[in-house]
Design a protein around this nucleic acid. Structure first.
Length: 628
RNA sequence: GCCACCAUAGCUCAAUUGGCAGAGCACCUGUUUUGUAAACAGGUUGUUCUGGGUUCGAGUCCCAGUGGUGGCUCCA
């Protein structure tokens, strides 16, 4: 399997641009050929027409279809209000019902400029198209200098390559909405330095039923949002007095986190990793030496003065690990050295970027740095990829994409020798090929010091998040002057591999909560079983079971509250506890537990010892099933 | 950081044109002793995010700040 060149997320300024990268289940090419695509593209034009009626002085930018809908960007003379949106939506539906035809016309650059003489964004696009500018993915933005086309429906003409539906009558007004998502600011051409426009999002489907389903899917998604479940299941809070982006782990969440941490730590020890522990601060010289200091200027906190020396709250762990490497002379026989640490790091993130557990200001990287000889690079890299595949696989997380982040040849933000970059990029591709891992290459997604392989998943609202990552680095070994003495007694430079299978505990758990919709497999469930006595007279037996199961290493609790059994069942069902053990007279007599699963399946009475053994085996096996 | 929106009890939400701050769940007390999705009765719970302003009177209107949501940019 070879990598395919995929478009970068930004910089395709024509109106066919898709701003959300698509998963492999819905190939972009197929979408672009679909009727739905034409409907959404056309709906965007109709929305623009209605917007221009509401805001005659608005300047129009671009309006492409996206996943689940479309948007159009405008420069507005006044801020848009909810009433404006309502008006535009109503007007839009009327225009759709009027069955206006979409007419395509080829125009010369001259004509196009005349048509859009008062539309600066269109003029900029025309100039780029005429110059034969290429999008970042290398695709021509127009077929040739005279290939400009415009589409007109009713009183609105847009510079556009199409395709469109025949007539607005092909779009069901009841399958269109622009009020599901609020308007957003969006920079012209995705460039923070340029004008911020107002983006109006819409959604359009072939039938009203599809729109209804889409709304229902959104509502379902909210229910499994990790922030909603985090509160419902008492996993974590983010407290405004502690600070935004600084999550506090509650006991249940801390158990989940600790379970994952211990699991990965054990796997790593089996694979020859060595634990290290390093502090959360470091002298600023450390980061100047590593070269992170200027590169991370925007994302690190102000230095802390300690007796006249400056210290940084660390934004990454690698420099500390490099200093451990240099603390002793190293032989070729020592390599590879794999230093692992669950290392807390702190990064300044703009307030608007913060989000639940998936984007925070203090997080823990399940970090490791592998110091390897060049001849070990490929094998070690493969070992790391296998480890990540194992981690994802064990959790049933199959819905990810792998991205090979290569350097952007246009940019000068990278350090290091071109030949080494080339070599490392090829090595990563080879490793993936040998492991049968499907991936695609994206230029501009590399770290500043080297190419990387990232594992990317989508959350419930289809946003993409980078989790696991493996990065090859020739730069830090040089900056820290890392060496080993080779077989021939020559001092040589090792290569570094940075890797984090989870990426960060915070983000990973956020995604994991959504992946399981809060119903964790028993080995991860904060409470694995709850024992519910039917009457207070059964409390002693419940306590006895509790001790017995605790002694078997299970996380269980006897619910001795003075309330009836049915209300306890309801309460614990809500918390997604995998196993409910109901005990009454019959159970005491037979030394059984009556097992009810959180799926509401009633498995009936089961000998206590049999349950204990089966539950322990289930947890031991990290089973995804809760049936015993 | 930027654009738009939002903020009422622990949670989910009410409160007419500016006119006594409420309900359900949770929690507490009592009664009830229950075999698989909410027993009954009573009770507690508020700086209506904060600070100003307008008004006879502000949860409601205005300004500023804080926090949150959706998006952009950025990112583990």
């Amino acid at each position: 399997m070879t990598g395919v060149l995929a478009p970068s997320r930004s910089g395709m300024p024509d109106c066919r641009r898709l701003n959300i990268a698509r998963g492999k289940t819905m190939p972009e090419e197929i979408y672009q050929e679909s009727q739905l695509y034409k409907i959404r593209h056309s709906a965007a034009h109709v929305m623009a027409e209605a917007m221009l009626e509401r805001f005659p002085d608005a300047k129009i930018a671009i309006g492409p279809p996206i996943e689940d809908g479309f948007y159009y960007d405008f420069e507005l003379p006044t801020p848009i209000k909810d009433d404006d949106i309502k008006w535009v939506e109503k007007r839009m539906k009327k225009l759709l019902a009027q069955r206006h035809e979409f007419n395509m016309r080829e125009v010369s650059a001259e004509e196009a400029r005349a048509l859009f003489h008062d539309q600066p964004y269109k003029l900029e696009l025309i100039n780029d198209l005429v110059r034969g500018a290429r999008a970042e993915n290398g695709a021509p933005m127009a077929d040739g200098s005279d290939g400009l086309t415009v589409y007109t429906q009713n009183n609105f003409t847009d510079l556009c390559r199409g395709p469109h539906v025949q007539s607005t009558g092909d779009i069901n007004p009841k399958a269109v909405s622009i009020s599901l998502r609020p308007p957003a600011g969006a920079y012209w051409r995705g460039d923070e330095e340029r004008q911020q426009l107002t983006r109006i999002y819409g959604t359009a489907w072939e039938t009203p039923e599809e729109l209804r389903d889409y709304r229902a899917r959104l509502e379902e998604a909210i229910k499994r949002d990790h922030r909603v479940l985090g509160e419902k299941l008492d996993l974590f809070i983010i407290d405004s007095m502690v600070g935004k982006g600084l999550p506090l782990w509650l006991p249940a969440g801390a158990i989940l986190r600790d379970t994952l941490e211990r699991w990965l730590r054990d796997i790593q020890i089996e694979r020859g990793y060595l634990p290290v522990v390093t502090p959360h601060l470091g002298n600023i010289e450390l980061y100047k030496t590593s070269g992170h200091y200027p590169y991370y200027a925007d994302s690190q906190y102000s230095p802390i003065d300690v007796d006249g020396e400056e210290f940084l709250l660390r934004p990454m762990n690698c420099p500390h690990h490099c200093r451990i490497y240099t603390s002793q002379p190293r032989s070729y026989r020592d390599l590879p050295l794999r230093y692992a640490e669950f290392g807390a790091v702190y990064r300044y993130e703009q307030s608007g970027e913060l989000r639940g557990l998936t984007r925070v200001r203090g997080f823990t990287v399940d970090d490791a740095h592998l110091f390897v000889r060049p001849d070990q690079l490929l094998e070690e890299f493969k070992g790391v990829v296998k480890l990540i595949q194992h981690v994802f696989g064990a959790l049933g997380m199959t819905d990810f994409r792998a991205r090979l982040g290569a350097r952007d040849p246009e940019s000068d933000k990278y350090v290091g020798d071109n030949a080494l970059w080339e070599e490392a990029t090829i090595a990563i591709g080879e490793a993936c090929d040998e492991l049968g891992l499907e991936y695609h290459i994206e230029s501009g997604e590399a770290a500043f010091y080297g190419p990387k392989l990232d594992f990317i998943v989508r959350d419930v609202l289809k946003r993409e998040w980078q989790l696991g990552t493996v990065q090859v680095d020739y730069n830090l070994p040089q900056r820290f002057d890392l060496e080993y003495v080779d077989r021939d007694n020559e001092r040589k430079r090792p290569v570094m591999i940075h890797r984090a299978p989870f990426g960060s505990l915070e983000r990973f758990i956020g995604i994991l909560i959504e992946h399981f919709a809060g119903a964790f497999p028993p080995w991860l469930a904060p409470t694995q079983a709850i024992i519910i006595p039917i009457r207070a007279s059964h409390n002693d037996y419940a306590r006895e079971i509790e001790s017995l199961l605790l002694a078997r290493g299970l996380r269980v609790k006897a619910d001795l509250q003075d309330r009836n059994m049915r209300s306890k069942i309801k309460q614990h069902r809500r918390l997604n506890i995998p196993w409910l053990l109901i005990v009454g007279d019959r159970d005491i007599e037979d030394r059984t537990v009556s097992l009810r699963l959180r799926t509401d399946e009633d498995l009936g009475a089961m000998p206590l010892e049999a349950f204990a053994a089966a539950a322990a085996a289930n947890v031991q096996a990290k089973s995804q099933e809760i049936g015993l």
